[in-house]
Write a protein that binds this DNA or RNA. Structure first.
Length: 159
DNA sequence: GCCAACGTTGGC
DNA sequence: GCCAACGTTGGC
C-alpha cells in the first residue's frame, strides 16, 4: 500500500505543533466526525505523512510535519463521562470513535499560511481551500503535500 | 464576535 | 424519510 498524505487541523490554543514536539508523539483523540472516523479505520496507515495545520488562530497555516506511528484504536475519551468528548451512545464492545497516534517530525522554518494556498492556483483543488470545508483530518494529494513542504522551506524526507 | 457552511438531531 | 432547528467549525 503506497504511503498516504494527510492534513491534521488543530487549534494551537488546544494542542499546537510545539506541544507535539514537546510530547514527541500523541494519540489524536476527540474526533467526532464519521468521515474522519472512517478515514482512521480504513485508510490511515503507519508511516503516512501528516501536515500539521493550525486553525482558528491569528494566521491559519501549515506549520510542520508529523507521521502516523499508531493505527486506529478506540478513543478512550468517548467512555469518560467527565470528558468533553464523552459519547453516551458509544459502547465499549462496539466503540464508535477512533484515534490514531502521530509523532513529531519537523517544524517548517517558514509556516505556510492558508492565505498563500488560496492565492496560489496550484492549490485550487485542495480540500483545505474549498469553501465551507471543515474536515479536521483530510487527505492531501502528494503534489500538494510536496509543494507545501517546499514552501515551508524543508525538503521532503526520504523514508 | 460574527456568520456562512455544514453535520446531526428529532418531530412529524 | 423530510426538513427545520440547532450546534459546531473556522475564516475573517
Amino acid at each position: 500500500m503506497p504511503k498516504r498524505y494527510w492534513l491534521f487541523k488543530s487549534e494551537p490554543s488546544a494542542y499546537s505543533l510545539e506541544d507535539l514536539e514537546r510530547d514527541t508523539s500523541t494519540f489524536w483523540d476527540g474526533i467526532r466526525n464519521y468521515q474522519v472516523r472512517n478515514s482512521f479505520r480504513d485508510d490511515v496507515q503507519r508511516g503516512d505523512a501528516v501536515l500539521f495545520y493550525h486553525s482558528s488562530c491569528k494566521v491559519p497555516a501549515a506549520v510542520g510535519l508529523a507521521k502516523v506511528i499508531g493505527l486506529a484504536e478506540p478513543d478512550p475519551t468517548q467512555f469518560d463521562a467527565k470528558a468533553k468528548y464523552y459519547d453516551a451512545g458509544s459502547k465499549r464492545d462496539d466503540p464508535r470513535w477512533l484515534g490514531v497516534t502521530i509523532e513529531f517530525v519537523s517544524r517548517f522554518p517558514r509556516p505556510v499560511p492558508l492565505e498563500e494556498l488560496k492565492s496560489d492556483e496550484r492549490f485550487d483543488t485542495m480540500l483545505l481551500v474549498q469553501r465551507g470545508q471543515r474536515l479536521s483530518v483530510q487527505p492531501v494529494e502528494k503534489a500538494h503535500f510536496d509543494a507545501i513542504v517546499k514552501m515551508g522551506g524543508k525538503a521532503t524526507k526520504k523514508s
